[in-house]
């Protein structure tokens, strides 16, 4: 880590001004579980690290008509929260699948959404890749068994967040605090592909922070789940994951939200699968079709074609389980 200055903020006011416009000079630290890794590898060499944990209004879960989660809420609190487990199952499961017990006690939900990719070329100092202003994506022709099968080019990172697909499937909205005060941004608009912006995975401005995350109350008949496939079950990022939220009325799917994790540079909405399910009964045939549709436009690299089969199977598994839920 470079020798930075540490600032412990106790209020939001003035923070945007302090953050300024240079992302590499001032960085926000929540749980620090991702940030410290980047600092230690000197991928980030900021002048100042701003700890936001002391800002009270960023904490806490409120559950009323919908869910309102402070950005600094730690993942273990979300995973264990009874109401979240019951009504926002996909989120509790996603939060519970992250890292390990210790890191879930440290990592925050806001940090989880803003964490940087885990691509080993991005994280390794010796590889000056596209994301580090270099001239090539090492993964494209390198060892890419964990890389993107959707939306990759020109950089084949996958978004590592487990909470993001879940929150996206639940239709979450972010409350963002910036120089002009607060604004709301639907999570679906938050992430951006490398083709739109190579350097950053989301549209948060340098001088903004996420303050709260709001999730609308699920419609009656909604059921949800998160399936995460890890190569090493004890602790791993998702090789592929599925966040599925289905609203079922009568026997039919009224609304389907299926978002995939670990397969694209952003949480990847499986639109074609959603379309296959819309208005249908969850028959075996429909499920097979939806699962196939989920990966129909996959573009695997040399070493990750298995992720296509895997993802199809995970979608199928998710739908089968939701059917019998």
């Amino acid at each position: 880590m470079v020798n930075f200055e540490y600032f412990e903020a106790t209020s939001l006011e003035g923070l945007p001004q302090l953050l300024g416009n240079n992302r590499n000079e001032n960085v926000v630290m929540a749980g620090g579980t991702d940030l410290l890794d980047l600092l230690k590898e000197r991928i980030l060499q900021p002048k100042r690290v701003i700890n936001i944990k002391k800002i009270q209004e960023l904490h806490g879960i409120q559950n009323g008509r919908g869910l309102d989660i402070g950005a600094l809420t730690i993942l273990s609190d979300i995973a264990k929260h009874p109401a979240i487990r019951k009504s926002y199952t996909v989120l509790a499961q996603a939060a519970g699948s992250i890292a390990n017990a210790q890191l879930r006690n440290m990592g925050t939900i806001g940090g989880n959404l803003c964490q940087r990719p885990r691509c080993w070329y991005f994280r390794g100092r010796e590889y000056v890749c596209l994301k580090k202003d270099g001239s090539k994506c090492y993964a494209a022709e390198g060892i890419n068994k964990y890389h993107a099968i959707f939306g990759g080019s020109p950089c084949f990172i996958v978004h590592p967040s487990d909470s993001a697909p879940a929150l996206m499937a639940l239709g979450a909205t972010l409350e963002i605090y910036g120089p002009n005060g607060r604004r709301a941004m639907p999570l679906k608009d938050f992430f951006q592909l490398p083709e739109d912006n190579l350097m950053f995975e989301n549209r948060l401005a340098a001088n903004e922070i996420i303050t709260r995350i709001r999730i609308p109350e699920p419609e009656p008949g909604t059921r949800s789940l998160y399936i995460k496939f890890k190569e090493k079950d004890s602790m791993d990022f998702a090789i592929s994951s599925v966040a599925a939220v289905l609203q079922i009325q009568g026997n039919r799917v009224r609304k389907a939200d299926i978002v995939l994790g670990g397969v694209a540079p952003i949480p990847w909405r499986a639109k074609a699968a959603e379309a296959e399910l819309q208005g249908k009964e969850l028959s075996d045939a429909v499920i097979e079709k939806a699962a196939a549709a989920a990966v129909s436009d996959a573009e695997p690299l040399d070493h990750n074609a298995y992720k296509v089969m895997l993802t199809r199977n995970l979608v199928k598994d998710a739908l089968l389980r939701l059917r019998s839920a």
């Binding site: 885990r118 080993w120 070329y121 390794g124 010796e126 590889y127 090492y138 022709e141 390198g142 060892i143 190569e231 090493k232 602790m235 791993d236």
Partner: peptide, 17 residues
């Protein structure tokens, strides 16, 4: 081992499982 640089890409306890 990365073919283009000849370095070990997973020299940590996270990526070396």
């Amino acid at each position: 081992m990365d073919p283009s640089t000849g370095t070990m890409v997973n020299a940590n306890y996270g990526d070396y499982k």
